[in-house]
Design a protein around this nucleic acid. Structure first.
Length: 683
DNA sequence: CACCCTCGAGTTCC
DNA sequence: CTCGAGGGTG
């Protein structure tokens, strides 16, 4: 074989390998087996080894290797690489549309391209004379980092723009923007390998791709199975299509990998419908997406619309509200409850979920932690219960590195360092010190909330305790204006408001008072029942356990809790102080349950009512003889239904409980005699 | 004694 | 909202 023959064969091999790599990585439709591909590749390597002078930078063999770099060089982008404004609801997308429509000629109806928003790392690729010359991260949008050596190892990054099939000539200079990402399956594999090597695992594909591309040693990047999708042209020496849709076709023709799920729509409704449909199937995608991007198709219009900050007006990310996220559990925190319970919570690496950044989440209790085997350092799945309260669902055990630490029961209270105890057969762990300052703060907050001292929450309670102004809840009634005024954030007016609010709390109905004391196991409902059997706090204090157990809803445990409470030195002191402070400790005139058209009926309120606050609605129901309870159960007669109801509605439907609107409730009150309601017996 | 139903307690973020 | 557990019932 002559040298010329060999050179020709070498070129053919390269072309064949490029072709098959393109089919495999870009089209995802290989025509030959992996083994056949490997054979071609080995043959090329051998030829190049024999003729090093023929090795070119765009040869498929040049994807691997390269010298590790000392650091990344900064690269200025030819024009700013913009970011995206985002929306989390259809309403926000429509609001965006309304904003841009006002800037457009009134007769103009924009088309939209909807593209998946890939969870990856934005990269900028430069081609000189059709050859991959420079690749950079987005950085701050103006300046990124040169990661050319690493991007060369990514198989779907064309090292040379494949010759287009339809006669288009590749421009001599072309800069494109794309997203480097990992498939979910590849990430899993990578994490498995990381665990074996005892190295750090990745919580999501974006971190893995970003970590992979920011390796100083390209050989490491090469092992990461990173992929690419390209979706826009940043600059070109040749003609550029005038619409986004044509840009995607053009990039595809040039041989770049372009996501297949992009779609062109003639109006916003159609685009939104497509987006919703596509998002619904997101769990089945091989890659992670965090939403879609809406782009005004006409690029001239996009330019005319301009930029706000770094966000082009002509584009919008429509993110789906994820129901869960994964992040690292950095540390274990412990809260002290009002009753002395030590409650574990997770301190997390901040993660966005449903439009808010989550930094903490409840871990419920230590048994739950043990059952789920949650450890400090774990990557955990976090979700928001009822779309509000973050909780740690489970650890991703397969992502463990061995550096995680098992969570054990606390030995002592994190605040007062008294011993922590767990009684047999009980889940909760308690701080044994009744004088624990953390408990005092919680009891004060509870008192203030139940007695209706507005605006006195955790922050203030903590502040007042720290400053030595409050040692227990009864001290509230001995606060002096000058002490409050000296505190940060308080002036004349706010001081007076607080004092007025405290003063107003001195005369509350007996059930409020009983609930506010914070006796373990005694909440709103039991306090209400108790108030029908005693006329004052003192009378309750004199009751024996046997007497208390006669009261419905009070069993041996609650009876003992009540007796123990009144026997404690601390409680006696506080009760005496409350009396001195002028707090009324008796009920009003002997009370019988109010009677009226709603007698004997139990209501649950859900959602926002048109004209009544929750408190007003409760008042309205109780003053007409009805009862308002918090949870839907078989004993509930009606669900009072407002706007945006929560899960109570589903529960009520399940139990076949009728719902009422505020209007229907009012109509029931108007009715001369209820609808055959039995008169609730007064106790 | 084994269930079922309700209540209490604690929870996060804006 | 969720879970544990108290209280009542069969």
């Amino acid at each position: 074989m002559t040298a010329n023959d060999e050179k020709e064969q070498l070129e053919k091999l390269r072309a064949a390998i490029r072709h098959h790599a393109y089919l495999y990585y870009v089209q995802d439709a290989p025509e030959i087996s992996d083994a056949e591909y490997d054979a071609l590749f080995e043959r090329l390597q051998k030829l190049e080894a024999q003729h090093p002078q023929w090795v070119t930078p765009d040869s498929p063999t040049q994807r691997v290797g390269g010298e590790p770099q000392a650091q990344f060089v900064k690269v200025r982008h030819p024009s700013p690489v913009l970011s995206l404004a985002s929306a989390v609801s259809e309403a926000e997308v429509r609001a965006w549309y309304d904003r841009i429509a006002r800037l457009l000629p009134s007769s103009y109806r924009p088309q939209f391209v909807v593209e998946p928003k890939i969870d990856g790392l934005t990269v900028v690729l430069h081609y000189e004379d059709g050859v991959f010359a420079l690749g950079a991260t987005r950085g701050d949008g103006d300046v990124g980092e040169d990661i050319t050596a690493n991007l060369r190892t990514v198989p779907s990054v064309p090292l040379r723009i494949p010759l287009p099939s339809d006669g288009h000539a590749a421009p001599s200079r072309l800069v494109v923007r794309g997203e480097a990402y990992m498939r979910i399956s590849d990430l899993k594999e990578l994490n498995r390998a990381q665990v074996e090597k005892g190295e750090k695992t990745f919580a999501n594909p974006r971190n893995a791709a970003a970590g992979g591309l920011r390796q100083l040693d390209p050989a490491v990047t090469a092992s990461r199975r990173i992929r690419l999708w390209v979706y826009s042209i940043i600059s070109s020496s040749g003609p550029v299509p005038r619409t986004q849709w044509e840009v995607l076709q053009y990039l595809r023709q040039l041989g770049f990998p372009v996501n297949q799920d992009a779609a062109l729509h003639d109006d916003l409704d159609s685009a939104l419908a497509y987006a919703e449909r596509w998002m619904a199937g997101r769990d089945d995608l091989p890659y992670e997406a965090d939403g879609v991007v809406f782009k005004v198709n006409d690029l001239t219009i996009q330019e005319d619309l301009g930029v706000v900050g770094k966000d082009p007006r002509g584009m919008l990310a429509f993110k789906f509200a994820p129901r869960q996220a994964t992040t690292r559990l950095k540390e274990l925190g412990i809260n002290v409850g009002r009753t002395g319970t030590l409650n574990p919570f997770a301190i997390l690496e901040p993660v966005e979920l449903g439009g808010v950044t989550i930094e903490r989440a409840t871990l419920h209790n230590f048994e739950d932690i043990a059952r789920k085997d949650i450890r400090v350092g774990d990557i955990v799945v976090v979700k928001r219960a009822g779309d509000v309260i973050p909780q740690v669902e489970r650890p991703l055990v397969e992502l463990r590195t061995g550096a995680e630490t098992v969570i054990t029961l606390p030995k002592e209270c994190p605040v007062c360092h008294s011993p922590a105890v767990k009684s047999e057969g009980e889940v909760a762990v308690y701080c044994v010190n009744p004088a624990c300052p953390a408990q005092a703060v919680q009891r004060i907050i509870h008192w203030a909330a139940v007695m209706g001292i507005d605006g006195f929450g955790e922050r203030l309670a903590q502040l007042f305790v720290d400053r030595g102004l409050l040692h227990d809840l009864a001290d509230l009634y001995f606060l002096r204006p000058e002490d409050i005024l000296a505190l940060p954030g308080f002036a004349e007016k706010s001081t007076q408001n607080l004092l007025d609010s405290i003063s107003a709390s001195k005369t509350r109905p007996l059930p409020r008072l009983l609930a506010a004391l914070g006796i373990r196991g005694i909440g709103d409902v039991v306090a209400e029942v108790l108030s029908h059997h005693v006329s004052s706090v003192d009378e309750l204090g004199r009751a024996t356990a046997e007497q208390l157990q006669q009261i419905p809803g009070v069993g041996p445990v609650n009876a003992a809790n009540i007796v123990d409470f009144f026997a404690s030195e601390q409680a006696r002191r506080i009760l005496a102080k409350l009396k001195r402070g002028g707090v009324r400790m008796e009920g009003e005139a002997p009370r019988a349950a109010a009677t009226g058209p709603l007698s004997g009926k139990a209501f649950v309120i859900t959602g926002t009512l048109p004209s009544l606050s929750r408190e007003q609605a409760t008042q309205l129901v109780t003053s007409n003889g009805g009862k308002v309870v918090d949870t839907v159960s078989k004993k509930v007669d009606f669900l009072l239904l407002g706007e945006n109801p929560g899960s109570k509605l589903a529960k009520a439907e399940e139990l076949g409980i009728p719902t009422l609107s505020e209007g229907q409730l009012r109509a029931m009150l108007q009715a001369p005699t209820g609808d055959g309601t039995r008169q609730g017996g007064s106790l």
